[in-house]
Design a protein around this nucleic acid. Sequence first.
DNA 1: ACTGAATATGTTATCGTTAACATATAAGAT
DNA 2: ATCTTATATGTTAACGATAACATATTCAGT
Lengths: 342, 342
Amino acid sequence: MSSEVTLKHIAEALGVSAMTVSRALNDRDNVDKETKKRIRNKAQSMGYTPNRVAKSLVSRKTHTIGVVIPEITHAFFPEVVRGIEEVAYKSDYQLFLTNANEQFEREKEAIETLRAQRVDGILVSSSLTREDYAFYESIIEGGAKVVFFDRCIEDIGASCVSVNDRESSQKITEHLILEHQYSKIAHLSGPQKVSIGRERLQGFLDAMNAQDIPINEDWIVQAGFREDTGYEAMWSLLQNNAGNLPQAVVAVNDPTAIGAIDAIRDFGLSIPEDIAIVGFTDDIRSPLLDPPLTTIHQSAYEIGEEAAKKLIQTIEEEDTEIEKIEVPTTLQIRSSCGCSYD
Amino acid sequence: MSSEVTLKHIAEALGVSAMTVSRALNDRDNVDKETKKRIRNKAQSMGYTPNRVAKSLVSRKTHTIGVVIPEITHAFFPEVVRGIEEVAYKSDYQLFLTNANEQFEREKEAIETLRAQRVDGILVSSSLTREDYAFYESIIEGGAKVVFFDRCIEDIGASCVSVNDRESSQKITEHLILEHQYSKIAHLSGPQKVSIGRERLQGFLDAMNAQDIPINEDWIVQAGFREDTGYEAMWSLLQNNAGNLPQAVVAVNDPTAIGAIDAIRDFGLSIPEDIAIVGFTDDIRSPLLDPPLTTIHQSAYEIGEEAAKKLIQTIEEEDTEIEKIEVPTTLQIRSSCGCSYD
DNA sequence: ACTGAATATGTTATCGTTAACATATAAGAT
DNA sequence: ATCTTATATGTTAACGATAACATATTCAGT
């Protein structure tokens, strides 16, 4: 990519100094109107494009934001990215997108690279599953501007945008208890190192406790976030509890629920008659499933918007407060929970 | 983002020159082993991150690729991006992602910005209509490395990666004719300004002509690319041809087909008994539809991979050939065409 | 012991832009 | 006519890394 035309070239062509050209093109006022016009015309005709690399070297700002997502195929993250994109575009920031593919090693590398690129800030939805905050602690300590979204790492000095996972999880669990009188409820939980894994489990427990329902530890199984891990977790739950099956399952997210649905079917049971199930996320496929999946609808776009706004604020203003921003959810009732829906 | 530690800092801390530090960290061989070790340890302990901005200024390479997509919500593009990401990651390139939101003005701006960022190359799926080459011609003329994907602009000196739309469209139409003996076939076409709209219509016509089936102009209706436009187009087709309905419909893409299915149902007809329908794209929802949609499966991931490979090759090697790369499609038979499928 | 090569290090200039300071010219005030 | 002040422009250095060239030091070969 070689635009090649530099300030110097323009300066030489017009017999002025590079500085004057710089001033003219940046529309400073202490440049003669005539000269300014001449310079700008020349710049135009020579096809000048300012070199942001050089500019960044001087200003120590790149006007770029790094985005690290753990996954790009399922609809949620692209939608978040769209929200980020929109806000970034309006504030004239460019986006560096990196997909960590659910591997923390890649996430780390991505962030190293982004820092080497001197992005002004980073938006992360972490794939971290181990107890290893050290990496984030050190980069935040080192002055990096970071805002987490959806999958947050808390109490390490960074803001975070997500839905109120705990409350939403409680809400959907209570729907099962109060509307359908289920009391034997299982939970396919996410990794406990990831905030949404913990929060959603907590919400589930809150609902059970609030309704005085005893909790069966055997029915709380660690599933990942994906379809295949959901299938496996559900399958082992069914196997290990053959004599005492739950009436309903709360899955940590929709892909997990989708996998679980297959497992339940393969086990020879029907949904929601034998086992009801609910998810979380409202995946684009969820209304089309058989039966359509009852889930928590979260506005991915809005999460993206809020995260980008907060990050840009953190970049541009001194001493911005560290916040935990919650984007509201809605309960999306369909029929996998036992409700009728069309 | 301030890593702050520079070569100079390390140099001062150790009483050597910055150049020696640079050499040591880049693992050049003419540096004393002991010194190298000392320098590397120090760099590590001081938390040094090389500044790519400065590096780029010297090398005139940024090791970044700009990606411009017209849309990010539709599952297709995120999947393409994943393919690009994977190849870029392996070759150690970073991605600048921009979403033009189907607006050519934004696409242009995005590209200007990417060039100012001095990306090494750009991957574009254009929202541009055919009439307006000039912009791309001039930047390609100016030495920009560009590879188009999916929505291509041809014959302007850039490579292009896409699916063989025309042939694939013919293939799926012929499936309706040869396997199901339909002869009364309608086409919900895409906008004729967009290459895939034109190509797919052509493929449809090719199939009809090859099998000597007369074409009924009333059954060729312009639909957009979206669900809502698909619904409208199908609805008006049904209304306007109430006395003489087609037996089957070829839709320009899956969202259009999804809209059309609703329209057919709302009109009181059943699928595929009264009217069969096929799509193009293989949307993530298509196997879940009722009935599951027969369509053309295009490997978005592979399109991304090929495009990224070609671009990196164009960047790194002199005089790479300009190619039109076609990624094969497969006919994804389900039951909306009248086949049985489970 | 002396030359030539190899090894290890330092110095200077450069990439393109801009901040900070310096200078020249014109216009206004006394 | 001289001194300010404002306006317009130029010069230098810096951002951080590195290529190109320069200089020490060591060591083998004769």
